[in-house]
Amino acid sequence: MNPHASKSTSPIQLAKSLVSNRSLIKGLIKREIIGRYRGSFMGLLWSFFNPLLMLAVYTFVFSVVFKARWVGGIGSRTEFAMILFAGLTAFNLFSEGLLRGPSLILGNANYVKKVIFPLEILPVVVLGSAIFHFLVSFVAWLVFYVLLIGTPPATIFELPLVLLPMVLMSLGASWLLASLGVFLRDIGQIIGVLTMVLMYVTPIFYPVAALPEDYQFLMSLNPLTASIEQVRNAMIFGTSLDWTGWLRQLALGAAVAWLGFAWFQKSRKGFADVV
């Protein structure tokens, strides 16, 4: 009998699974974080240096080579770097689920074939690891912001709420891609390219206001646009949360999460036959 054949798609059942497997999830997240840097000389310190290196490269390319400046009178390279880093770390939090999703089941085939294992928690483990690295990047950003600019706005405390819709979308996409990756082995390559494209069509390196009006409408169709803008508002500009827009984003994120989970649960019965 296939242990993964009949699984509920109910959000209540998902919540029960997460609660009952919380110790397992914590252990796997810890292993995921430590395993990423196992054997390296600096270990977890790479989680600090990697985002800082990316920040330095992108800041040089956009502010020095292309002479880019942020719309709204912000001309300092330091301020530009802080704005850029804020959007980039939020996008990285989202994209981790996309990039890791296609290989989740294939990379853990022993869980499918040998034991009764709650496969639905694997995307949650990836999300937990992504949140850890986001927090590391956020602390690095905060330290540099305080040293170079000053005290951040009080709206920074709204950041967990701002990020919630993106987290839900990432989780839903991870469930969907984890399932598709079992049956379509090329999906990982496709998602890698699409994620790169998505990064440049999301207002990370530029504000929406910098685009021509016709393109601003197209940009608004990107589900990440509102969240990235709100991240910058909370971390940099001190603009309070747009609750109407946030509720729309939250509803979209919840819908994506549930649809991804439902697809995963319906398709998991075929994993053992393919892996």
Rank of each mutant, 00 (worst) to 15 (best):
residue 140 A to Q: 13
residue 13 Q to Y: 11
residue 94 F to N: 01
residue 44 L to T: 14
residue 197 V to G: 11
residue 39 G to S: 00
residue 50 N to I: 15
residue 177 L to H: 08
residue 149 I to Q: 04
residue 67 K to L: 09
residue 140 A to S: 15
residue 196 M to G: 15
residue 56 A to V: 13
residue 127 L to D: 01
residue 113 K to H: 13
residue 18 L to K: 02
residue 1 M to V: 12
residue 268 R to C: 05
residue 108 N to L: 04
residue 51 P to V: 04
residue 131 I to E: 03
residue 246 W to P: 02
residue 217 F to I: 13
residue 231 V to E: 01
residue 81 A to M: 03
residue 140 A to Y: 13
residue 212 P to C: 00
residue 66 F to G: 04
residue 84 L to K: 08
residue 48 F to A: 15
residue 158 E to Y: 14
residue 273 D to P: 06
residue 22 R to N: 05
residue 60 F to H: 06
residue 211 L to E: 12
residue 144 F to N: 03
residue 233 N to L: 01
residue 227 S to A: 06
residue 77 R to D: 13
residue 265 Q to C: 02
residue 232 R to C: 03
residue 227 S to L: 04
residue 84 L to Y: 07
residue 210 A to G: 14
residue 245 G to D: 04
residue 234 A to L: 11
residue 264 F to T: 06
residue 170 S to W: 00
residue 171 L to E: 01
residue 128 G to E: 01
residue 83 I to Q: 02
residue 26 K to M: 15
residue 271 F to Q: 03
residue 218 L to A: 07
residue 130 A to E: 02
residue 124 V to I: 03
residue 65 V to P: 09
residue 231 V to Q: 03
residue 7 K to W: 12
residue 220 S to Q: 11
residue 124 V to C: 00
residue 102 P to F: 08
residue 267 S to Y: 12
residue 174 S to K: 07
residue 187 I to T: 04
residue 235 M to N: 04
residue 146 V to T: 06
residue 157 F to D: 10
